[in-house]
Design a protein around this nucleic acid. Structure first.
Lengths: 248, 248
DNA sequence: CGTGCGCTTGAGATACTTCAATGCTAGTGG
DNA sequence: CCACTAGCATTGAAGTATCTCAAGCGCACG
């Protein structure tokens, strides 16, 4: 499936990894990696722990999650990904997947051949630089998460997750004022914050009562961002820094 | 202070970041970055949150920790570093430090000028590749930590930290059989695992009683690695994989 | 010979979990 | 069009892992 000019345009515009490439080079990379556009429904596996790594995905629409699954069923979500995000152990030398990646909503994504993608990154310095930047950005995000899980209370963790997602949506222009689509179940929030779904529910109820945030029918509304920031122990400046963060 | 041939040799041999450079190129890089060798005592700050980034450190001897400090004093240790490790936001574009880095034991380290180090990484592809590899390795380690803090009990977290450090020491050849130098206080373990020092103490006492591990006079002894692995929910294969991990 | 830091232990508090039940909504098959 | 089911949110009640506060002890250091 040959990428059209429009599709190449969309990739350059919305995918940080490709943001600084000339359409020319990108088109060449897409050809080299046998890029194809596919669609998946909800709850589909994109990759599983232990599987061989054969390709790299770039999300165009919808949400996926990457998670770790322990023997007894405990689950830790490491990352939510949406349009513009890259999933897969791109850049590492790992030959097998370490984690599970699964769709949450229906997803439209590009699939690139992993091996030729690595080769392209080696040949194209700009792509290599972007890849490195992506790694450091992810590292910083994951370190924030370590502090959250290690040292912050349930309300703080949840408030911060909500704000991180809000910043992400703002950056992508996908939030209308103080509202954004929120396709996650309470169990997703639980597994991302290291809590139980029941406790997430109680905390969310308290957020609702204190007029900070409410979630109805898959839409999250920030009723009062000052209250939310207080719960998250963040200043407005911190929040603005969050928006600037992300894969630039 | 001009690096001697012996010093260059030591850097190539023990610092993953430089492991694949020719002595020639390394010497050139060290000159470009005004590399100097310094020594610090215990509990010295190497950098503080908010400070401007001016240099990059490479530890030759001793231990440092990098941590996040919340307004109310809660502390989360993100990483312990020792010989061969690089500390500092090398590779990112951040102009200011995000975390605190402090020595635990006396430390001998090289200091490289940050700006010219970045420049060197841009010019020397092999260095750039190593930097990227380092970032992905760190990312993977930090993701393990997220799962530990989010989903594992106190004994599991502590057992896994001990095993991760043991693997690190084995890799560096710094462990004698089942013993290694352990300069950390129980409060360090607490802040690395998201627990309190009191609870770490109780858990460590139980490890001692169950003949898994004991710590005496700054030396950690793995009495029975099978028991320890059980506590950590790890197999011997997992542990061996840990040893192979790390910045190759 | 005090003083401080780290380790140890006890007792009580609490944030979060577990188990269990109820209700709501959307989808499915008859 | 209704009965049935499944998934998710909500709430109550009881349990527990971990925390907090507090005290004592040993050792190193000045």
């Amino acid at each position: 499936m040959m990428p059209s000019a429009d599709e190449v345009q969309e990739l350059v515009a919305h995918v940080p990894l490709f943001g600084s490439l000339r359409s020319e080079s990108l088109k060449h990379i897409l050809e080299q990696t046998s890029a194809r556009l596919v669609e998946d429904g909800s709850r589909q596996f994109i990759s599983r722990h232990g599987q061989e790594v054969t390709d790299v995905s770039i999300i165009m629409d919808g949400w996926v999650m990457r998670y770790d699954l322990l023997a007894d069923g405990r689950r830790q979500i490491l990352e939510f990904g949406t349009s513009g995000d890259t999933v897969g152990p791109f850049g590492t030398t790992a030959t097998h997947h370490q984690y599970f990646v699964q769709t949450i909503t229906p997803v439209r994504r590009w699939i690139l051949d992993a091996e030729s993608f690595s080769a392209a990154a080696r040949k194209e310095p700009e792509l290599h630089r972007r890849l490195t930047l992506l790694a450091f950005t992810a590292l910083s995000e994951r370190e924030d998460m370590v502090t959250d899980l290690g040292r912050r209370s349930a309300p703080e963790r949840i408030a911060r997750l909500i704000l991180r997602l809000l910043a992400r949506m703002d950056r992508a222009g996908s939030s209308k004022g103080n509202q954004y689509d929120f396709p996650f179940k309470q169990s997703h929030i639980a597994d991302a914050t290291g809590l139980t779904a029941v406790h997430v529910n109680r905390t969310l109820m308290s957020f609702r009562k204190s007029n900070a945030v409410r979630i109805d029918n898959g839409v999250l509304t920030v009723v009062n961002i000052d209250v939310l920031l207080l719960l998250a122990e963040m200043t407005m400046a911190d929040f603005n820094a969050l928006k600037r963060k992300g894969p630039a």
